[in-house]
């Protein structure tokens, strides 16, 4: 059975869990409503469109005692080399890791086209700013490079949030800062042919760089002095990969491997990075208060108004 409006599906009492695979600009509204309706949720990445959405998702998951999993299978499955070395005691406490993603999302000004019969364009837009229908705004193309919904900032953060959810997720896992958010983002301006790059600084001194010149994706830097003691690597529960982990936790009521709070901590890097690139200057971040302290300009970027009647 298909529904045009997710609220009709979520009102069903015979459904215990849902998989949210909407475009990014819808994720938080659907996830929070699902929690409010008592459903467990598996949400595709990137889980959020703005910084403000993250803690709200976590609040709803905790308020209603729901199992809510983020959606990146790559965090555990793609970066085992770096993860096993870091958790195995190879590296010292002076630890840095680099992440590479490309484009931020950008504006879209496509010409109007007739809305196809039977397609609810207003519902597709939902909380995003109104724009005339154009098939390129909403076709099935997930590319962040070509013109597609995921390359437009009304609907997505672009590659830094799309692949960033994977790569930053893997990086934070490898250097074990999954439970933290950075306290500072240092902006290194472009120099000559060298593009601008970023450095996220964590309260424990760990650094995650973004597009640092000369560094590969998930390349670790460490002095290998004062080695971090080896510890067991967390993994999925149950069988069947990340979906199996979620289903296992739905039954056991444990937190899944990609618990929403960990996913949101990863998303904070994606959004903080985007804001830093847009403002082209370094930023301080107060993770507890979810604000840029004393920085009125940056604080404007923590959220964006949703189109009526959609509301968090």
């Amino acid at each position: 059975m298909a529904y045009n409006d997710f609220r009709e599906l979520l009102a069903r009492e015979d459904i215990e869990a849902v998989h949210v695979a909407t475009p990014d600009h819808w994720h938080t509204l659907v996830v929070t409503e699902a929690c409010r309706r008592g459903k467990d949720v598996f949400c595709q990445k990137p889980e959020t469109l703005t910084l403000r959405e993250g803690p709200i998702m976590v609040e709803y998951a905790r308020r209603y005692g729901r199992v809510v999993s983020g959606g990146s299978q790559r965090v555990l499955e793609d970066y085992r080399g770096a993860v096993n070395q870091a958790w195995g005691g190879k590296y010292g406490k002076a630890l840095a890791i680099n992440v590479i993603t490309n484009n931020l999302s950008h504006a879209c000004n496509l010409p109007p086209e007739p809305v196809p019969d039977g397609f609810d364009w207003e519902m597709w837009l939902g909380p995003a700013p109104w724009a005339p229908f154009n098939a390129k705004r909403c076709d099935g193309n997930f590319s962040t490079v070509e013109n597609s919904w995921r390359s437009y900032w009304d609907y997505s953060g672009g590659e830094i949030t799309d692949w960033g959810a994977h790569h930053f997720g893997g990086a934070t896992f490898a250097v074990d800062v999954r439970e933290l958010q950075p306290q500072e983002v240092v902006y290194h301006p472009a120099q000559g042919t060298q593009k601008a790059h970023l450095e996220f600084v964590y309260p424990n001194g760990v650094r995650i760089t973004h597009c640092k010149p000369g560094k590969q994706n998930i390349e670790v830097d460490s002095d290998e002095k004062n080695p971090i003691p080896a510890k067991p690597v967390p993994s999925y529960k149950g069988t069947g990969g990340i979906i199996g982990d979620f289903l296992h936790c739905v039954r056991s009521r444990e937190k899944p491997f990609r618990d929403i709070e960990l996913a949101i901590n990863t998303m904070s890097l994606c959004h903080l990075g985007t804001i830093t690139y847009r403002l082209q200057r370094s930023l301080k971040w107060d993770a507890a208060k979810q604000t840029f302290p004393g920085d009125a300009e940056a604080n404007r970027f923590t959220d964006r108004a949703r189109r009526q009647p959609w509301q968090l």
Partner: peptide, 15 residues
């Protein structure tokens, strides 16, 4: 009706 949302888009974030 056409621009109310975008007016809020600005107003909501002006401190």
């Amino acid at each position: 009706a056409e621009l109310s949302h975008m007016a809020r888009y600005a107003l909501e974030r002006i401190p």
